[in-house]
C-alpha cells in the first residue's frame, strides 16, 4: 500500500533514508518497556550472582546452630542476617546470592546444549525436507513423547545429582522446541527467492546456511533460547524441590524451597523468598525473550 509508486530511477532511496536493520532494531529496543524492565531485573540478578562473594558476609555453607531460623529484617529480624537464617542457621542472603549462580549456570549451559542439538536438527530438516525432515520429525516425536520430568527425575536418581548430570539431562531433554521452531522458520526462509538466488550464484551449502538461512532465523533461535533457559531453571528447581536434582548442601533455590517446606506452617517466608527470587529470574528472562522477539521482527515489506 505505502510502497512509493514510480520512484524515479536515478534518485537514491526517496525521502529520509530508512534505517539499516541494526539501527531500526536499536531504536525499537530503546522504546520497548518490557526490554528495559527485563534487562534491569536480569542485570541485578546476574550482578548478584557474579559478585556474590563481595555482597555477602557469610559462606552459604556455614552452619550456626545458635542462630537458627532468624527472621528477615522486615519481619523483625536483625541487620546481621538481613534475610534471616534457615533451619541450620545458614545465612539466607548468602544462600540466595550463591543460588543465583546455580540457576543461571544451569539455565545457560542446558539451553546451550539444547540449542546446538535442536537448531542443527531443525535447520537441516527445514532446509533439506524429504527424508532428512522425516527422520528429524521422528526424533522430535520421540523426544516429545518422553515425559520430561519423569525421565529427568529417574536419570538423576540413578546417576546421582551432580550439577553436571542435571545440566546434561536437561540439555538433552529440552531441544525439541528449538528443532520444531527452527525447522518451520527455515522452511519459510528456504522458500524465499534470495536463497534460490544464492544457490544459482554458486554459493556452497554451508555458505547458504551460514549467510542466508541462519541470520534470518537467528531471532527465533534467540527467543527460544530464553524460553528454554527459563524452562531449564524452573525444571532444575522442581527436581531439586523433589529431592532429585542438585544435592544438599548446594544452595539451589529449589532445594531451599524444599527445605523450607517443613516449616510451611510457621515460617512461610522460608519458601516465599527463594520462590520470589526464582519467579523474578524466570520473569526477567521471559520478558527479555518477548522483547527480543518484538525488536528483531525481520524488516521486510516496510
Amino acid at each position: 500500500m505505502t510502497q512509493t509508486a514510480a520512484a524515479s530511477p536515478a534518485t537514491p532511496p526517496a525521502r529520509e533514508a530508512p534505517l539499516t536493520p541494526r539501527q531500526a532494531m536499536l531504536r525499537r529496543a530503546l522504546r520497548h518497556r518490557g526490554l528495559i524492565f527485563g534487562t534491569t531485573l536480569m542485570g541485578i540478578i546476574v550482578f548478584v550472582a557474579i559478585f556474590a562473594p563481595l555482597l555477602t558476609q557469610y559462606s552459604p555453607y556455614d552452619q550456626d546452630l545458635l542462630a537458627r531460623m532468624k527472621p528477615p529484617v522486615f519481619l523483625g529480624g536483625e541487620a546481621e542476617h538481613w534475610l534471616g537464617t534457615d533451619a541450620l542457621g545458614r545465612d539466607f542472603w548468602s544462600r540466595l546470592a550463591y543460588g543465583a549462580r546455580i540457576s543461571l549456570m544451569i539455565g545457560i549451559f542446558a539451553a546451550t546444549i539444547s540449542a546446538v542439538i535442536g537448531s542443527v536438527l531443525g535447520i537441516l530438516a527445514g532446509y533439506f525436507g524429504g527424508r532428512v525432515d522425516m527422520a528429524v520429525t521422528f526424533l522430535i516425536n520421540v523426544r516429545l513423547a518422553m515425559p520430561v520430568v519423569l525421565v529427568a527425575l529417574a536419570v538423576v536418581a540413578l546417576f546421582g545429582g551432580s550439577l553436571m548430570v542435571v545440566v546434561s539431562v536437561l540439555g538433552l531433554l529440552l531441544w525439541d522446541r528449538f528443532a520444531v521452531v527452527l525447522r518451520s522458520a527455515t522452511m519459510q526462509v528456504r522458500k524465499l527467492e534470495y536463497v534460490a538466488a544464492a544457490e544459482v550464484l554458486g554459493a556452497s551449502l554451508p555458505r547458504v546456511l551460514w549467510k542466508d538461512i541462519l541470520p534470518n532465523v537467528m531471532n527465533h533461535l534467540i527467543v527460544i533460547f530464553t524460553l528454554e533457559m527459563a524452562h531449564a531453571i524452573i525444571l532444575e528447581a522442581a527436581l531439586s524441590f523433589l529431592g532429585l536434582g542438585v544435592q544438599p548442601p548446594t544452595p539451589s533455590w529449589g532445594l531451599m524451597i524444599s527445605e523450607g517446606k517443613e516449616m510451611l506452617l510457621f515460617e512461610p517466608w522460608l519458601i516465599t523468598i527463594p520462590g520470589v527470587a526464582l519467579f523474578c529470574l524466570v520473569l526477567s528472562i521471559n520478558m527479555l525473550g518477548d522483547a527480543i522477539r518484538d525488536v528483531t521482527a525481520p524488516e521486510g515489506r516496510n
Binding site: I234, A237, A238, I257, K261, G275, L278, F279, N286
Partner: peptide, 12 residues
C-alpha cells in the same frame, strides 16, 4: 503463569 514455578505456586 509462565514465570511461576508450579511447585511453589502449589505451596503458596
Amino acid at each position: 503463569g509462565q514465570a511461576i514455578p508450579s511447585f511453589w505456586f502449589g505451596l503458596i
